[in-house]
Design a protein around this nucleic acid. Structure first.
Lengths: 242, 242
DNA sequence: GTTATCTAGTTCTATATAGAAGTAGTTGAC
DNA sequence: GTCAACTACTTCTATATAGAACTAGATAAC
């Protein structure tokens, strides 16, 4: 344990301990996405707690976005579908009615020694570096540089590209059992230079929007750091307050 | 009632109806910010409901960010302090240690006929138009154009500027009883032109970040639309997902 | 075959109750 | 005066119970 992970149980209330146990089982991949977990009654029976307490634990996980409840039907594991959410930053309206599908192209994958700032974030200098280009309507829209700690993703660098697919997070879960629970995006503004400009088909110095994302596992470990760039004119972001 | 406001009670569950009644009393200004509401017991007594139901109603308002509970002390009205949150979009670090205070300067206020897009958002063309400049460390940082429906804010155009203060939302509440419960911000990038460039002290065509905000009352009525511009290099935004 | 009804499961609402945990002011001892 | 103890209050946790609302699949009627 390199970092301070949540200390086991100590003296937390029962509903929180149950929440933690459930979160751990979810992270372990015990249930498939879009499939039902045990019912309130079942959990009540084999946890020895009361229904109210069980409901409170489940509700927490719902609030955190991991689960989803449907009255009369059951409690379901939500599929983690926000990898595509980077696209949500950019205006994807483009010519007419055909809803083109965003595509991904991996440009490079390699196990390398991380530069200091990246190593500090990921907690190790043994990392994977991935370059990726994301296309929309056959035009390059986003240029990405992705850094992963090597250990949890060992073998990624030699997986066939065909197996990976356009979204990384579902792949992380399937292939490595790594679940991205949370991410922080930081948006800023700059100008395109060098390879970034070339890849996006922009002139040197063109205005770009930059998104730096840090992604976390359920236990708070950093699983990814990525830097995404796209043309500033197409950038558009919505945010709710209050 | 021009728009579909929440229909009274019909057949909602009790805890939701209690939530609505409490929200209405809060909006009516019955309690001061940072001050205690009636206790669970008191509410239980004069609502005729049970503690659990009362707690559920209160918890809703806590989740919505209106209230705040402190064990052993009471339930408090949170002061609506997110007017300044536009500043949160911009990097305010600036020379040394003195934490300069953001200031506001009203440039113009007038009752006018709204252009069509604004009228569509506000639901009326009888509006107030306000131009404002926000300063940080004595330098202009944000240029704002604010549109309000006239009726709820009648008289604003002739209030003395000294009475208004640097933050609008607390003033809206005090002076007009209008409570901003929720807002949606939309961020994009563009270039400065005309008066905007002049006011911010930027050259024509300089890159700027633009934030369009729509603000809502508790019942969903639109109470404000504003467009804020600031220099793009100083823009920085953090966002949580998941 | 198609449609309606039943049924066994699920979550959701609501009540009642008990005590733990925490706060803030008052009282009492020194 | 100072500090400790007490007290009356608050929210928080947890249990037990009952029925309503809803779902999805099985069964029955035609």
């Amino acid at each position: 344990m390199p970092e301070m992970t949540a200390q086991e149980d100590s003296r937390l209330p029962a509903y929180m301990r149950l929440r933690d146990r459930l979160a751990a089982r979810i992270a372990a991949g015990e249930w498939q996405a879009e499939q039902a977990l045990p019912s309130e009654n079942a959990l009540t029976r084999d946890s020895g707690l009361s229904v109210g307490t069980v409901r409170k634990a489940i509700q927490q996980l719902v609030d955190e976005g991991l689960l989803e409840r449907r009255q009369g039907a059951g409690t379901f594991l939500r599929k983690p579908a926000f990898d595509s959410s980077l696209f949500r930053f950019f205006a994807l309206r483009d010519g007419g009615d055909s809803p083109s599908i965003p595509a991904s192209r991996l440009l490079s994958r390699a196990r390398v020694t991380a530069p200091d700032p990246v190593a500090a974030i990921l907690g190790t200098s043994d990392v994977l570096r991935i370059e990726r280009l994301r296309l929309f309507a056959d035009e390059p829209l986003l240029s990405e540089e992705i850094w992963l700690p090597y250990a949890p993703f060992a073998g990624f660098e030699s997986d066939p590209e065909a197996a990976i697919g356009p979204l990384l997070y579902p792949y992380f879960l399937d292939r490595f059992g790594q679940f991205i629970a949370r991410a922080v995006d930081e948006v800023s503004f700059g100008t395109a230079k060098g390879t970034t400009a070339t890849r996006l088909g922009l002139p040197e110095g063109a205005p770009i929007a930059r998104i730096e994302r840090t992604a976390f596992a359920l236990d708070g470990t950093v699983l990814e750091w990525r830097e995404t760039s796209g043309p500033a004119e197409r950038f558009r972001y919505r945010s709710q307050i209050g």
